[in-house]
Nucleic acid binder design. Sequence first.
DNA 1: AGCAACATTGTTAACGCTCACATAGAGGAA
DNA 2: TTCCTCTATGTGAGCGTTAACAATGTTGCT
Lengths: 365, 365
Amino acid sequence: MLLTSQVFPHGPEVSFQMNPPGGRTPVMADVARLAGVSHQTVSRVVNGHPNVREETVLRVRRAIDELGYHRNSTARALVTRRTNVLGVIAFDTTLFGPAQTLSGIERAAREAGYFLSMVSLDDVSPDGIVAAAEYLIQQSVEGCVAIAPQRSLVDALAALPGPHPLVAVEGGEGSGLPVVCVDQVQGAHDAVRHLLELGHATVHHIEGDPLWLESEARVVGWRRALEEAGVPVPEPLPGDWSPRSGYELGRSLVARRAEGERVTAIFVGNDQMAIGVLRALHEAGLRVPGDVSVVGFDDVPEAEYLTPSLTTVFQDFAQVGKESLALLLGEIGTERNGSSGSSGTARRVVPARLRVRGSSGPPPP
Amino acid sequence: MLLTSQVFPHGPEVSFQMNPPGGRTPVMADVARLAGVSHQTVSRVVNGHPNVREETVLRVRRAIDELGYHRNSTARALVTRRTNVLGVIAFDTTLFGPAQTLSGIERAAREAGYFLSMVSLDDVSPDGIVAAAEYLIQQSVEGCVAIAPQRSLVDALAALPGPHPLVAVEGGEGSGLPVVCVDQVQGAHDAVRHLLELGHATVHHIEGDPLWLESEARVVGWRRALEEAGVPVPEPLPGDWSPRSGYELGRSLVARRAEGERVTAIFVGNDQMAIGVLRALHEAGLRVPGDVSVVGFDDVPEAEYLTPSLTTVFQDFAQVGKESLALLLGEIGTERNGSSGSSGTARRVVPARLRVRGSSGPPPP
DNA sequence: AGCAACATTGTTAACGCTCACATAGAGGAA
DNA sequence: TTCCTCTATGTGAGCGTTAACAATGTTGCT
């Protein structure tokens, strides 16, 4: 029970008895009758109101236990106009990032006493996300977190009519929606600077799906680091987050190397693609980091145990979950207070952290 | 719109207008007034009843659009006693399997017109899962899918009072709850037979968290294959699914090899641990599959791009999601029809499929 | 005593919807 | 015509809860 209330701080201490009066599941009136009070007093006890006599509370509690009464959340929601449910919209939860973010949001929501209703979409499209949002709204969620990989998606959401509390995760800025994101630019910047400081003349970049904001931001950080160092900026190679695309683009870099181009360091958009790149390099007989250094992004659990272990960038998804929930609850609060002034400009940035491991080293002489 | 109704077959075609009469969000009565009909007729139109004159339907539709009316799902749920929400309980969605299963269930639920309320737990405990189930039940979910890695968890659920439709995924058999699972035994058996057929004298096993049923079942399949072949059965090494544990147990096998034990093939409980094993073997200067063959389980997307590419066992999680939802909907249906006879013995098994890749080969001579 | 303040409980009316039933008109068969 | 059926619509009563207010009793103070 201790555990229970730790995990579900807002969950009721539910009893296990079952003793419906006439086969029906018991309602407040049943409890009231058994306890010899009015249903309203039962309501007061259930909701922990003050000003109920100790002895009455006990009697009601006993009746509740005896009948195995559970408060009907639907009826409650109808009259309070609060469902206690939040919505989450996610894309491709096969990917490590979205899956982790979802998990972080779920925990934060539960701790805040909210249920989570989830939609996960396969194809990235404004139609899809709007449909998902409408779907959730008509289920009466109090607000939504959208893990939205593209600016256009966030824009589509921001254009939704009616004052619906919405928060975007990784949704870029200036979209008129509050946003929480990891500082992709800084993370990429750190990674690339790390490689430059090791002595590489430049750093090539295999990016994720170029349509995704995360990808875009990492390109920005990569480019900025190169420009700051005054080194040449090669054309980034667009992938799609998959190991396969990492492999193929890795091969194309190998080919360019064979043609004489100096490729000694590759910053890859995520760890999965980095695995593909490692494979391509290995097949070409190139040593990592002896011949080529590789840095990934995400810090998947296996990164440390690849051969070589992968230098990568860690993102605190739990923190992202917490922050986005805090923002959303803020939205809900202000909306409830009638102040229609949207806090659309709110923006919380969670830092990324470079994890240096075995796949990055000085360039060959 | 076409896309919308593909993704949300049961979603309403929601309008985007907003025009509340007195600041309030419009209700059926508002629509009725505007259309010059009774609220009941509006209800009929909204629910697609027959026996409404074409022209009336149109008039009501127009009013609905004009006001931006959405049906209040809470009020509907209160009177119909159907929330259209299902619950899912999952453990450690960081792991590939649970995350994929969740995703499969989500899709199947959406296609069946159900919302999904999710709880994901960190520690595996009967208290935790019961609390989660109670939490969801008191939110009035119509049924629950529990992705339950341990028999004891399923037993705890089965012991819940009241007729709550519940389905377990990977929950073992004989627990009194309907169960959907991947045929772990067969998958493991296939993997081990593959190795034996390559000529290995025996196959060592690094198992996942021994408390998990998946782990147990894979051990069973592995053992059975060895016994059928009449080869010695080494003691399995218990891990915890993490790459780290794979690495450490891999090292211990390397050590035993150094002491003269013949270790030429390792069947590993999942791909993440297999990655750790590959690392340990590599560090010891052993070649895969030249010196030691390795087979994993799960077929994570990167398995194909590891070096060497990983032979592993594929699980059709989408199918698991579909089956479990079908089972749950069946439960809900029978419960609704009063027939209290639980279909507790129902059991659907989804086959696993071996994917032979580069990490398995004949033993050294 | 007399009155105000407070604590405790009860009564009634929503919340927004669906269900069961009532009603009215149209059409057909006897 | 008369009655019965069928279609189209309306009426009223809940579903189980909370909120607002009313109605007690209880205490303390002048």
